[in-house]
Write a protein that binds this DNA or RNA. Structure first.
Lengths: 355, 355
DNA sequence: AATTAGCACTTGATCGTGCCGAGTGCTAAT
DNA sequence: ATTAGCACTCGGCACGATCAAGTGCTAATT
C-alpha cells in the first residue's frame, strides 16, 4: 500500500495497466518488452512482474497467463500513475453544445448530460437529480382558469416551479383568489410541511373566508409538490454499451450489471452518500452496488452554491479508460454547475464558473 | 392463412403454443399426449403436428426436436385462439394504487405506468409521451421575481404548464409587467410559432413600450417551450428482465434487443405511426424495430378525447404470455386515459371512463 | 550484482470424437 | 381412422489430445 515502489516498478505497472485498458487482455512480459516502452528484456520484466504480483498490484488469471491489474493496482494507477486526458476537438464541441443551451429545465439538462457522457466515454452512464435537503415554497401564485378551477403555481427555486390545477366546488372570482393567494404567501412561504400545526391550518382556513374549503386540496398539492420534487431520480443511459466490452460478454456478468443498474435505490444511496468536491472512483469491490466486484463506478456530484443538486457518472469494467472518464466527468459536472448558476437569474458577481 | 384448420388442429395448435409459452422449449408429441389436454395418442398428434408444420403454423428447430410456433402460428393464436386473462387480486391492487393517485404530472404518470407494466408482465416495458399535433400557449402570466427578473408562466394545456425565468437589462415594475402580460395574452394566445410574422412582432414590441427589449427573449422562451414539449419522449423500463428468458440468454440476442431499445427514434416512429384504438401486436418480423425478428412488441396508444397523448407497452420474446400482456396493456392504458381525463378539471359529464 | 538467454512446465482454449436421448416419420397392425 | 413399434436423425455433452502463450528457474553474460 505504501509508496515503496521503485521508479522502474511504477513504470512497468503503468505500462501493464495502460496496455490492459487498451486491449482488455492479460498482458505478458514479452508484449511489454516488444512495445519499446520499456528498455528491458522480457526476463527482467518477468521478475518485476512477479514482484508486483507478490505485492498485490497485479494478478494472474491462471498460471500461464499474463498479468491483469488487481483492484489495488487500479487504485494506485488512479491515485498516482495516471496521466491527464486530451480531449479531441469534436468532443469539445459536443460539450460546448450542451453547455451553451441555457434555457432548459434542470431535469432535461442532467438527462442530456447523462446521454452525452455515455456517448463521450462509451460506457453506460448514470444521471441523478438529487432532492434538496429541505424544501419550501418561496412564493405562491394563483391563476383563475375558469369559474370552477384555478392554477396553483408554486415557486420552489429559480429552476423549479411546480404547477397544479385545483378544482373548486364553488364558483371563484379573481378577487377572492387574490385573497387566497395573499393568505398562502403570508402563512406558508418558507414553511416546511412538517412544521405546520393543526391550529395554524385552522387559522389559514379562517383567513380564506368563503373559500376555506379550498385549503385542504391546496395543502395536499403543496405537500405533493414538495414531496414529488423530493424524490431523487436516477436515470441510466446507454446500457447497450456494456456489450462492447469483452468482460461483460458472458451472460452472467451482464446479468449482474443490469441488475445493479436496475437497483436504483442502492445506487442513489451511494451517489448521495458521497462527498461532493471530488470525482469519486469506486473500483471493483469498492463499488458496493455491484455484488460481483467486477465493475467500476465513477461519478461526481454537481455542486451549485455549496449544495448538491445532482450527479453524473459512468459504470464500466474495472479496466476502464480512467483518465478519459475522470476528466470527462469532472468537466461536464463543472460545466453543468456553471450553467445552472448562470441560469439562476440573480446576479452573483462574486462567483465565477470554473474553467 | 385461411381458417382451414379443423377443430382438432386448432386444439392441438393451441396446446402447443400454450405449452411453449409456459416452458419455453420445443414441445413434442409425447408431451402433449401425456398432458391429458388431448385425448389422442402421440402418433396421431405427430401426424397433425406434421401437417401444422407443413401449413406453416409450427416450425422444427431441427429434425429431431419438438415443434415451436412460427410467427404465423403466434399470429393465429393471438387473433383466434387465445383465452382471456384473469388478473390476480394483488395485480388488481397494484393497478388501482397507480390509478388512484390523481394529482400527478403527465410525465410521471406515464413513467410509473411503464414501471408498473414491466413489473406486472415481467417484460421490459416502453413508455412514450407523445407530442401533441400542434401546440399553442393558452395563456401567459408574468410574475416579478426581483427588480431585474421575472417568471414567465405559459399554460399550454391543463396538464402542461411551462415556466421560465427571464432576466431583464432594465429595472422592472409590477405595473409594466402587467402591461406586457396583457400584450402577450392579446397577441400570442392560440398562435402557433410559425404563424407569427415580422410585422406582428414589431407591433408587439411597440405595444410593450419601454420594455420592448424584452420581446426577443420572451419569444425565444415561448418557442422553446412549445418546441421542448413537442419532442416525444420514450423511456424503457426493466431491461434486466430480458435475462429471465432463455431465448435471450445468448449475448448476441441480448445485444440486438438492447440495440433495438436504444434506437428510440425508430421505436417512436412505430408507436406513433400506429392507430390508437387497439392493442397493437407486432410478432417477430412484424416488429420493424428489431432486425433479428425474434421479439414481439405489444403496445397501445393512450387516447384522451380522441387524441393520442402517449403509449405504453412491452417488448419480449415471441413466446410471450400474450393474453396476460394484452389485457394488462389494455387495462392500464385505459386506466391512464381515464385518470388524465379526471385530472383535467374541466368537468365533461358526457364522457365516462371505460370500466 | 544486475541483466539476459534458454528451457522445461503449466494451463486454458480449441477442436474432433463418440455416446446419449429426445423426437421424428413411416409402416404395419388394430 | 387411430395406434403401436421401430429405425433414423441430430443437437448436446463429456472426454481427450493438441496447441500456444506465458511463466519460473537456472545458467551464462555484461
Amino acid at each position: 500500500m505504501e509508496h515503496d515502489l521503485s521508479e522502474r516498478k511504477k513504470q512497468i505497472l503503468k505500462a501493464v495497466i495502460d496496455a490492459h485498458i487498451a486491449c482488455g487482455e492479460p498482458v505478458g512480459s514479452k508484449l511489454l518488452a516488444a512495445k519499446g516502452q520499456i528498455a528491458l528484456s522480457s526476463a527482467t520484466i518477468r521478475n518485476e512482474l512477479a514482484e508486483l504480483t507478490e505485492m498485490g498490484y497485479l494478478m494472474q488469471p491462471h498460471t500461464s497467463a499474463g498479468r491483469v491489474p488487481s483492484e489495488q493496482g487500479y487504485r494506485f494507477y488512479v491515485d498516482s500513475l495516471m496521466e491527464g486526458y486530451d480531449r479531441t476537438a469534436t468532443e469539445i464541441r459536443e460539450l460546448n453544445d450542451l453547455l451553451t443551451q441555457r434555457t432548459r429545465q434542470l431535469d432535461r439538462i442532467i438527462d442530456d448530460a447523462g446521454r452525452l457522457i455515455s456517448t463521450l466515454t462509451n460506457y453506460p452512464a448514470i444521471a441523478v437529480r438529487s432532492h434538496p435537503r429541505s424544501q419550501t415554497v418561496r412564493r405562491f401564485n394563483l391563476m383563475l382558469m375558469d369559474t370552477y378551477s384555478f392554477l396553483l403555481i408554486m415557486v420552489i427555486s429559480e429552476a423549479n416551479v411546480v404547477t397544479k390545477t385545483v378544482r373548486s366546488q364553488i364558483p371563484l372570482t379573481e378577487e377572492e383568489l387574490k385573497t387566497v393567494e395573499q393568505v398562502l404567501n403570508r402563512a406558508l412561504v418558507g414553511r416546511e410541511p412538517d412544521q405546520l400545526t393543526l391550529s395554524q391550518m385552522m387559522e389559514i382556513e379562517a383567513a380564506m373566508g368563503r373559500l376555506g374549503s379550498l385549503m385542504s386540496p391546496i395543502l395536499k398539492c403543496i405537500y405533493e409538490a414538495l414531496r414529488a420534487d423530493n424524490r431523487s431520480d436516477l436515470r441510466v443511459e446507454g446500457v447497450d454499451r456494456f456489450l462492447e466490452y469483452p468482460e461483460f460478454s458472458s451472460v452472467d456478468r451482464l446479468r449482474s450489471m443490469l441488475e445493479m443498474l436496475s437497483n436504483k435505490q442502492e445506487l442513489l444511496e451511494i451517489v448521495e452518500g458521497a462527498q461532493g468536491d471530488e470525482v469519486n472512483v469506486y473500483i471493483g469491490s469498492e463499488n458496493a452496488a455491484d455484488q460481483s466486484g467486477d465493475s467500476t463506478l465513477i461519478f461526481k456530484t454537481i455542486m451549485v452554491d455549496g449544495r448538491p443538486i445532482g450527479a453524473i457518472g459512468v459504470i464500466g469494467p474495472c479496466r476502464m479508460d480512467y483518465s478519459k472518464v475522470i476528466s470527462t466527468v469532472e468537466q461536464l459536472s463543472r460545466g453543468i454547475a456553471g450553467m445552472i448558476r448562470a441560469q439562476r437569474m440573480l446576479p452573483d458577481p462574486d462567483k465565477k464558473d470554473p474553467p
